[in-house]
Amino acid sequence: MNRRDALKPKLGNDGKPLIGANGKPMHYLLDPPSMAGKLWVWRYLILRRLSQVTILLLFFGTFHWGWTLWGQPVLTGNLSGSKFLGILPMADPFAVLQIFVAQYILDSEVLIGAAVILGLYALLVGRAFCSWVCPLNIVTDLSSWLRRKLDIRDVFRLSRNTRYLVLAAALVLSAITGVAAFEWVSPIAMFHRELIFGIGMGWMAILGVFVFELFILKHGWCGHLCPLGAFYSLVGGKTAQLKVHFDKETCTHCGECAIICPEPQVLNLKKAGQVGTVGNECTNCGRCTPVCPEGSLSFAPRYQIGKHSNSFSQENPTSIRRAA
């Protein structure tokens, strides 16, 4: 099916087609009838689940079934600290930062590991941890899917910047108590650890996050409170190469992307139109790209987006001035 055939005009209350901000009619994107078409629309969702489950499985298989490759254990440890094939150390840079703030000197292995992960997210894939690695994402995606089906309203409102306050509190408390404050309560680490090393009472924390996101506040944990997400937003938001590119010319402001996006504030289209890319808290989950009827959103390396916006500003200097 051609992309054009999948479009259906969006009608207003008076039955007339709605006209977008760029003067073109708004559209819905119809679900493709074929399985192949559906899989293509769901491609990033499928890839993300594969990535999340594969990482979990590598940890689990190495621990429980002794998976080795070239005589080396495949992936030991967990997301807090791990080693790939006995050579490449990896560590959670936020956990290391907390221990550092608690004023303890760590061994070099974990410092190298933290640098590896920090480099990966800061230079290459941005805040991709949240949607491609974090096991809790599977749970919170489920709750937001149920929310869309059941049309549940929020109990209260909370600023999405609260997470930066939580991030600051985690560091302050680490300094005061002398232990890594978030690591000792993190539902992410709890969930991940218990999946690999054996189930305890940690599922209650996961249930808590699920219920909170489902009934109390939409994206309440991942989008409002989680300091790890806040950390990776700060780390990867401005420098990482992988970004969702926004094409102002084709966008009709139909709002389809904002419905599916777990961090809709990154789709501030006025700002995105100026810089050519979505905001820093974008998790690169890719959910918006297949649902956009006009194809205005797509993954692109940052250096290309830079070129785009440059040529764009030369062609249309007035639009930039208006936006500013």
Partner: peptide
């Protein structure tokens, strides 16, 4: 308590 990053590599 301060240094343990809870990675479980020792358990491995």
């Amino acid at each position: 308590y301060a240094k343990c990053i809870k990675c479980g590599k020792c358990v491995d």
